[in-house]
């Protein structure tokens, strides 16, 4: 299996608290589910991968390259995109503008080009708009007619779709999804599962790490599951293997 992302004994301390503890993790061309009770370090781990936190110890390799000390914007440029647990779109901006932000890392226009070579700048924007609308259509065609509306007027399920669309529009190699179904009802959760499946259908060259508490989501879309507890990896394997694991059951049910 060709490794896309690999972490080596990654740890992070917040004061006296070790949120992630000696974590070895790797992902190839697959969808990996990251599960674990609240506070087990799942989101912290995504924050380490995407460069928001620097690990206290350990290294992160992406396509064989050490990205441990890179800032978030350079990690995005390498091809790791993410969504956030609490939906974090730019609410004042239109759907289209949010999508164009997802393409920022692929665009080249500098400020002086924007001022003095406005035709190349607007050509780049035009291409971006076409691409954004194509991706939006892939997720929910109804959003195209609302492309110029501010995101705050859009319902939650569509906001999540837009956030995922924003993450994949820039052709990342790896997408990190942090609880994409939080706050959705069961009908919407089903739609979201289909949407995530669509990412892979669009391009098999996208690996996905997904944090989720809803086990139906995990069982239906992930190919492999990693379970964390107190920052440590306690189980790894297919969903049915992990679900049978005694340690996992104890971690979730307590006792």
């Amino acid at each position: 299996m060709m490794g896309v992302l690999r972490t080596e004994r990654v740890s992070i301390d917040f004061g006296g608290l070790r949120a992630v503890d000696n974590l070895d993790f790797q992902i190839g061309d697959e969808i990996v589910g990251l599960i674990g009770p609240n506070g087990s370090g799942k989101t912290t781990f995504l924050n380490i991968i995407s460069g928001i936190y620097k690990p206290t110890r350990g290294r992160v390799y992406f396509n064989g390259e050490d990205i441990t000390s890179l800032p978030p914007h350079m990690i995005r440029a390498k091809g790791i995109a993410r969504t956030f647990q609490t939906n974090r779109l730019c609410l004042n901006l239109s759907i289209l503008d949010n999508m164009l932000l997802g393409l920022y890392c692929q665009q080249q226009t500098t400020w002086w080009q924007a001022i003095f070579m406005s035709s190349s700048s607007s050509r780049e924007i035009k291409l971006g708009i076409e691409k954004s609308l194509a991706i939006l259509a892939h997720f929910n065609p109804a959003l195209i007619t609302r492309a110029y509306e501010p995101v705050m007027t859009i319902p939650l399920i569509d906001r999540r779709r837009i956030e995922i669309a924003r993450a994949v529009v820039g052709d990342p190699r790896l997408v990190l999804l942090d609880e994409p179904t939080a706050g959705l009802n069961s009908e919407e959760t089903n739609q979201m599962i289909n949407d995530i499946a669509k990412i892979r259908r669009r391009s098999s060259q996208i690996s996905i790490i997904i944090i989720e508490h809803d086990m139906t989501v995990i069982s239906r879309i992930t190919e492999r599951v990693v379970c964390l507890n107190a920052g440590q990896k306690i189980a790894e394997g297919t969903f049915s293997e992990v679900a049978r694991n005694e340690l996992v059951r104890t971690a979730y049910l307590g006792g």
Binding site: S50, G51, I52, R76, A77, F84, C90, Y104
Partner: peptide, 14 residues
């Protein structure tokens, strides 16, 4: 504008 709204999200867009 993205930085105005949320600097961390902006950084994660590159």
């Amino acid at each position: 504008n993205a930085i105005e709204q949320d600097p961390i999200v902006a950084a994660c867009q590159g």
